[in-house]
Design a protein around this nucleic acid. Structure first.
Lengths: 246, 246
DNA sequence: CCCCCCGCTTGATCCCGGTCAACCGAGGAG
DNA sequence: CTCCTCGGTTGACCGGGATCAAGCGGGGGG
């Protein structure tokens, strides 16, 4: 009698239909009944301690991961050992899509705080999306949005000045936190100045100096990792100051 | 009697199974029989004149496109009007994947020489890949590789110096041309210095200066848009010169 | 509880690549 | 053919952000 009960508990624990992230995660926009079809998408959950990696670049690819709670960074290491942060991921976001193309992961995913992810074996994702059109459509959208997100970062890195990049970074963080029900104006940075700098293509000293400048200008308040946004409109103005002559 | 013949001709003309790009394009790795299932993936072909756009950012999304011949750039325009080149595309490469996520295109695709694309209505792509597993798998791989490619550009823009970026750009071009049966060492750039600069996050003057420097160093020969690579190993050395102290 | 380490801040200086400007040459129009 | 335009090259100068360096302070471990 214990076995089935345990199984049911497990099922419930890993069920998308019971997850409070279903409005953000892969099953977005699916009806209650549709959601139940997804309940065997997730095989297990996995906890990742702060500082530990979910997977490393070069490792064989087998599953996608959805962040249940916590915070991750993805990093790419070039041939000569330079490391570049390529993204930050929070609850409801999907990890591991880089691995599909070459059957191994290209980047490393590291937890910046104690975190938990839902493990979705990729074979199962493909299986289910072949038989369940709404999931297929949504999965394609998620892949595509990752492409669009990356293009946004390319624009950031390729054509914006340091202060614009940092303003854009803060506005983006604020928006994503808001979507998750956190305060839009007050939060704790999970990453170091060095990691922000790597992501934004600048040095940690520059990040630090800009934080101080933004504070002097009354846009934000910073104490170490604690940030309070005082003037989001002002930040948006900084990030789009078209200083291009005709 | 004329109708069926025309239909057959059209079918042949747009058939993946007859296309000499099948080793590069979406049907990569499929067997001859498998390929025939794909023959109704492409609805029509479309020619795009040099300077014209296949689609614009903001336009509704309905189809993916495979380049049959020619050369494209994709550009993103930020709120304040700055334009950033986010990629260059040649024969066999897939365009339009940015549109899936939001049902409209985010970037603009412009032909840099007279070109032709295969139009693949996205509904048909999804339909076929639900019923035809190898296509599904391959389509996912293509999407994923676009993500990986973009991450590579992020690394380029975020952590490499101007000369390293340009060297990487030339090496990448050379490799992609080789894969298409063109000369690895001699080619004509389809884009301007300004477009290269935008893609690589630098100004056109810097691109021009670096071309001259590479020439002085005996790595390449440049005359306007004509480039001959003299020392590919040297270029690779430039692009990976780890000037990072421990 | 205190200490030590690591992440952050801030100042001084340097240099890569941006900016401004002049000129060149290829190629298309008339 | 010549002119004109536009993309490319090159030089001179400048400035944003990198680099080097010193000091600080918070939080985790002993």
């Amino acid at each position: 009698m214990t076995e089935p009960v345990l199984a049911t508990l497990t099922r419930l624990r890993t069920a998308c239909s019971q997850c409070n992230l279903r409005e953000l995660c892969l099953p977005v926009g699916l009806s209650a009944e549709e959601l139940q079809t997804l309940d065997n998408l997730v095989s297990t959950r996995r906890k990742v301690r702060r500082g530990d990696s979910l997977f490393y670049g070069g490792e064989p690819f087998s599953a996608l991961y959805a962040v249940r709670y916590g915070f991750f960074k993805s990093t790419l290491t070039s041939g000569d050992g330079r490391e570049q942060v390529t993204g930050f991921y929070m609850a409801g976001e999907l990890l591991g899509m880089d691995g599909i193309g070459g059957d191994r992961h290209t980047c490393t995913l590291t937890a910046l705080e104690d975190s938990e992810v839902c493990v979705m074996p990729f074979a199962r994702v493909e299986d289910l999306s072949r038989h369940f059109e709404p999931l297929q459509r949504h999965f394609h959208k998620v892949l595509s949005r990752e492409i669009v997100r990356d293009q946004g970062v390319m624009m950031l890195l390729g054509s914006m000045r340091a202060e614009e990049r940092l303003a854009a970074f803060l506005v983006n963080l604020s928006q994503r936190l808001t979507a998750r029900g956190f305060s839009a104006s007050e939060f704790v940075l999970r990453m170091t100045r060095d990691e922000i700098g790597s992501y934004l293509g600048m040095k940690l000293e520059t990040v630090s100096r800009l934080f101080s400048r933004f504070q002097e200008d009354g846009l934000i308040e910073v104490h170490q990792k604690h940030v309070r946004i005082l003037d989001i409109a002002g930040l948006k103005r900084v990030m789009a100051q078209a200083q291009n002559a005709p």
